[in-house]
Amino acid sequence: MIVNVDVNGRLRSFDVLPGAFLLDVLREAGYTSVRRGCDSTSCGICTVLVDGKPVPSCSYLAIRAEGKKVTTVEGIPDEAARLARHFGEEGADQCGYCNPSLALAVYALKQINPGASDDEIRVWLVGNLCRCSGYQSQLVAIKRYLEERP
C-alpha cells in the first residue's frame, strides 16, 4: 500500500507492505542514518522524529506516518553539525552508531527545554543506550550544545 510522508521537508510516497515498519522503509529509501539496534524498542538507536517527537522507528508502523512529518538526522544537518562539534571537543563520539539518533532526541529536547538540567537530560535520553562512551562526556557535550544560542 502507498503511504505519503513528509521526510525532512520533502513529500515522499512509499509503496510498503502493510506490516512494514518505518525503520525498514526509511533505510530502503536511502536514509542510512536510521539504524537498527535491538529491533525491540529497547535501545533508542532507531529513533526518528515524527511530528517533532522522538519515536522508535523499529516498532512504528510505516502507514501510521501517513500525512506526518518525519525527521531523520539528514533533515537537521546544521544542528547535527553543532552537536558534533561539542562531541568532538569532549571526545564523546566513539563508534558513532548511536549519534544520529542521539542528535534527533537532543534536538527535540532543545525545542521544549533548552535549559534542561543534568538530570532532565539523563531522563530524556535514558532510552538512548550507548555502550562506548560511559555517558559522562556525552552529557557535558549535550549541555554545551543546549546552552549554545545560534
Binding site: 558534533a84 568532538g88 571537543e89 544520529p100
Partner: peptide
C-alpha cells in the same frame, strides 16, 4: 584533545 576525524560526518548520518 583534537576532535576525531569522522565524528561530525557520523553524527550527520
Amino acid at each position: 584533545p583534537l576532535a576525531s576525524l569522522d565524528g561530525k560526518a557520523l553524527m550527520m548520518g
